[in-house]
Amino acid sequence: MNTKTAMEIRLVPLDKIEVLNPRERGSRAFDEIVGNIKTIGLKKPICVTPRVDSRGEQKYLLVCGEGRLKAYRVLGENEIPALIVQVSDEDAFIMSLAENIARRQHRPLELLVGIRQLLDKGYTTKIIAEKTGLTNSYVQAICNLLRQGEERLLIAVESGSIPLNVATTIAGAGDDDKAVQAALQEAYESGTLRGRQLLMARRVIEKRQRLGRSAARTSTGRRTDVSTVTLVRTYQNEVKRQTALVRKAEFSQQRLLLIVGALRQLLADENFVNRIFAEKCDGFS
């Protein structure tokens, strides 16, 4: 990226700033940003790059700091401290994506959306890895899943339901059910998938077989255009569904343990066992 070494911080009118790479943010996280700025002020300026529109008027493209920008608007401010950098539209877009991906508390789907956007703009996996700080092998695997339209597997990977290497193997098996089941069996035997994670993986594969690889479909079964909002909403719904499934499984396990314990106590009672034999119950005769 060709940025000038000399950078300047100055107050920029909010109505002159255009968000280049908008993204969704949870209400709780946004409320925290607003509260912090209201209480202690802006600790870090946003970053923008100057432009001149078709009418010759000065405007700015936002490089990073969308949450802070929105918070200032909510608080009724007219200007915001901004670091001015001189970069191209392309570099500004990349800087914005890289900043979102590099955040320690980014949501999993934001990572996928960011990589998808870079991939759609023609960047190689090696360049994407360099710009985002991710490993080349990770980016390569994610991009392969994106190219194959494996949205359900991608969501499962980023929610922690399926390891990336297992998702890659399943995607490579295509629609061959035997090959997919073999991949699951191999993952189980190697210890990659166990217990709760194995149950989640089976659920994801069942939905993939029944509803297809895409996570966003219309009522007629046709694929719809996948937006950031759609992906995030699908991910959140999937996490809620799987969480409820896990809780239900844990409850059932507890009930079964109680039943097993009760049966052991009964079978330890000699009078009970004699009564069973006396009644000639098939299970004990």
Rank of each mutant, 00 (worst) to 15 (best):
A6F: 13
A6N: 15
E8L: 13
P13T: 05
D15L: 11
E18G: 05
L20R: 00
L20P: 02
R23L: 01
E24K: 12
S27D: 14
R28N: 12
D31Q: 14
V34G: 06
K38R: 13
I40C: 02
K43G: 08
K44N: 07
I46V: 03
V52N: 12
D53M: 01
E57A: 12
Q58S: 13
L62P: 00
C64V: 14
G65T: 03
R73H: 06
R73N: 01
G76A: 00
E79H: 12
A82G: 04
E90F: 11
D91W: 02
A92P: 05
F93G: 06
F93K: 12
R104T: 11
E110K: 09
L111H: 04
L111Y: 07
L112T: 12
V113N: 13
G114P: 08
G114T: 02
I115W: 01
R116S: 14
R116L: 08
Q117P: 03
L119T: 14
L119G: 03
Y123N: 01
T124Y: 08
E130L: 09
G133L: 04
L134D: 06
L134W: 02
A141G: 00
N144W: 09
L146Q: 13
R147P: 05
G149F: 03
G149Y: 05
E150S: 04
V157S: 00
V157G: 03
V157F: 01
E158A: 08
S159G: 08
S161E: 10
S161W: 11
I170K: 04
A173L: 03
G174W: 06
D175C: 00
D177W: 10
D177P: 06
V180N: 01
A182Y: 05
A182D: 03
E186I: 09
E189Q: 13
E189I: 10
R194W: 10
L198E: 04
M200T: 00
A201W: 03
R202I: 03
V204A: 05
E206I: 09
R208C: 03
R208F: 02
L211Q: 05
R213P: 06
A216L: 14
R217V: 15
R217G: 08
T220M: 06
R223G: 04
V226E: 01
V232W: 01
Y235K: 08
E238W: 08
T243F: 07
A244R: 14
A244G: 09
R247L: 10
K248E: 15
A249C: 07
A249H: 06
F251G: 09
Q253G: 07
L258G: 15
V260C: 10
A262V: 09
L263Y: 14
R264H: 13
A268V: 06
V273I: 11
V273N: 10
R275C: 08
I276P: 02
F277M: 14
A278L: 14
E279N: 09
C281V: 14
G283L: 12
F284D: 07
